[in-house]
């Protein structure tokens, strides 16, 4: 550079020995471990894609679209629709429940309280799902505490079945994915500075109006992210329908499992998996498309 003589005496040693690695090469180097990890995951998905067009017994050499054709049968279509419906409803419920919790978390002043809250919210992720399913059983099972209480109060004369049906699965889906909804919502709401709420209040908005007209729309990207995460997470849920559905709620992931054990039909299982991934991605893309503009506007101003 022409100006270098102004800042550095001519002939003086450079401050550091010159590095032969260019900055962009260094960035790639920095990314390598994570790229390798992601690469393995992507390779695994591609293998699944390959198997899905194989034939049973010749997963790697055969070619057939029969596995996909099979998915068009009502048995699988029903399962796919059930899966998407439960994932969608669970996402809506989770977001509805997570919004007040996220708001509360975002407005807690004391760091200690905030940490306690966070731990409480993360609980479902920390406790083994099998263990949680026993908790559900103890509380909601036909002989569980809730039914005992209702029977004792004379409100019902037969135990209400809250488990081993869609209600049970839905509750399980909401509960297990709850942190995925709370964390982005809380983080988005923390991004809505207090002064926006105060400004709205001085302009004449009641607390409810402030929440509905300012806090909610401003944290919408976080809410959508939360809903999308819960949706995607629950669309592929396997353990919850297995443990809380009593095998009576045939979500697609359970069907995939049936194809592997005992049927050992890898192509059929892979095809179902691919369809699940593609459908989920399509719905996520759609939601991003719908809310993208608003998200960009909000991001530009923050």
């Amino acid at each position: 550079m022409a100006h270098s003589t102004l800042t550095r005496p001519v002939g003086a040693a450079p401050l550091r020995p010159a590095k032969t690695i260019s900055p962009s090469a260094r960035a790639w180097l920095f990314l390598t471990p994570s790229m390798l990890f992601l690469g393995v995951l992507i390779a695994a998905s591609l293998l699944v894609l390959r198997m899905s067009v194989g034939t049973k017994g010749a997963e790697w050499s055969g070619f057939s679209l029969a596995s996909y054709a099979q998915l068009l049968e009502p048995y699988y279509l029903k399962s796919l629709l059930l899966t998407l419906r439960l994932a969608l409803v669970s996402a809506l419920i989770a977001v509805l429940l997570a919004t007040p919790v996220g708001y509360c978390m975002s407005r807690l002043q004391s760091p200690l309280l905030r940490r306690v809250f966070l731990a409480a919210v993360l609980m479902p992720l920390l406790v083994n799902l099998l263990l949680q399913s026993y908790g559900w059983l103890v509380i909601l099972g036909p002989g569980g505490m809730l039914n005992q209480a209702l029977l004792g109060l004379g409100l019902i004369d037969r135990p209400v079945m809250l488990l081993y049906n869609q209600t049970g699965v839905l509750m399980g889906l909401v509960q297990t994915a709850f942190p995925l909804a709370v964390l982005p919502i809380a983080s988005a709401m923390r991004g809505v500075a207090r002064s926006y709420e105060e400004a709205a209040a001085t302009l004449g908005a009641s607390r409810l109006q402030v929440f509905r007209q300012v806090v909610l729309p401003m944290s919408l990207p976080g809410i959508i992210t939360g809903a999308t995460l819960v949706f995607a997470y629950n669309a592929s849920s396997f353990v919850v329908p297995l443990l809380l559905g009593g095998r009576r709620v045939p979500m697609l992931a359970v069907m995939v499992h049936d194809q592997i054990a005992p049927l050992m039909n890898w192509p059929a299982a892979s095809a179902a998996g691919v369809v699940l991934i593609v459908t989920t991605l399509a719905i996520m893309t759609f939601s991003e498309f719908v809310t993208g503009r608003r998200r960009r506007i909000l991001e530009a101003s923050q």
Partner: peptide, 20 residues
């Protein structure tokens, strides 16, 4: 009286214009 019933206009240091 709560802020929203006072009918005062206020301009904040951060301005707090609603980005949405």
């Amino acid at each position: 009286t709560p802020a929203h019933q006072r009918n005062f206009g206020m301009v904040f240091q951060s301005l707090a214009l609603f980005p949405h």
